[in-house]
């Protein structure tokens, strides 16, 4: 009985010590997923990446300068994610840059760039991993950008201002990334009682401490960056028009 009490006390103490703010919390680390799930997520991500590569190469054949711009933007996004942004709760965390990238380049191009950035993060910063690259690509470079892009377009269409749409895009993009990662973890580690749903609840609950404040600060940051870009870099952004064939991307709005 005393032993049991001791263990319980340790357990509670442990919870309090362990919950606070790990940076980069949502990259699934190398080897955390069983091989089966690592393969499944890689296979799901592949069509998006292939389509992205095809669409990039098609656009590059018309405008060779864009390749360098894309490379440089990739490096920019990497640096963005390497800096810490202050979070609402007082801790700090790393932004994903997903919202900004998606409205600048469109979701398909962003998925390829995002995959490359995730590989660099795994090899240069030790965040994420090679076997989990597929799962991380799916949550951060596919779900995030697609949600952000279509949220932006949808809210814009509803007649809200640019600021509101950008905030919602970045906020929801981050939030959906966090939901997807929790679901990926839950599918790989279903709970004994309650299965995947209970497990998803556990992961959502524990990561909510870091991810929801981060989503709010990233939303705010993206709006501020957007405002500066809209004021000072209009002509540069117009070059990006080529990546957003469909009307409604950020660069189109800047020109009108």
């Amino acid at each position: 009985m005393i032993l049991k009490k001791c263990i319980t006390t340790f357990f509670i103490l442990g919870l309090f010590i362990l919950i606070p703010k790990p940076a980069f919390a949502m990259h699934i680390m190398e080897g955390f997923l069983p091989l089966k799930w690592a393969l499944i997520w890689t296979i799901i991500s592949l069509p998006f990446l292939i389509f992205g590569i095809v669409s990039i190469s098609r656009k590059l054949s018309q405008n060779p300068q864009l390749k360098l711009l894309l490379g440089v933007s990739g490096a920019f996004a990497f640096v963005l994610s390497a800096l810490k942004i202050p979070s609402v709760t007082g801790s700090s965390s790393h932004p994903t840059g997903v919202g900004l990238g998606a409205v600048l380049f469109g979701p398909y191009v962003m998925s390829v760039l995002g995959c490359i950035i995730l590989l660099f993060q795994a090899l240069l910063l030790a965040h994420g991993g090679i076997t989990t690259l597929g799962a991380n690509t799916f949550s951060m470079a596919i779900v995030g950008p697609f949600v952000a892009y279509y949220t932006y377009k949808f809210i814009k269409k509803m007649g809200f201002s640019n600021g509101v749409s950008i905030f919602c895009a970045a906020f929801l993009g981050d939030l959906m990334t966090y939901l997807t990662t929790s679901l990926q973890l839950a599918l790989a580690f279903p709970a004994e009682v309650g299965g995947v749903v209970a497990s998803a609840g556990k992961f959502l609950g524990i990561f909510a401490f870091t991810q929801i404040p981060l989503a709010i600060s990233e939303g705010l940051l993206t709006v501020v960056v957007y405002n500066f870009l809209a004021t000072y870099s209009k002509s540069e952004l117009s070059l990006l028009n080529i990546f957003n064939e469909t009307k409604g991307g950020l660069s189109n709005d800047l020109n009108t």
Binding site: L60, G74, V79
Partner: peptide, 19 residues
Amino acid sequence: PNIVTELMILVYRFIFIFI
């Protein structure tokens, strides 16, 4: 694919300057 490795070279080249 060639475009991926080229993008990787470019990203790698600029990361350190930007950081």
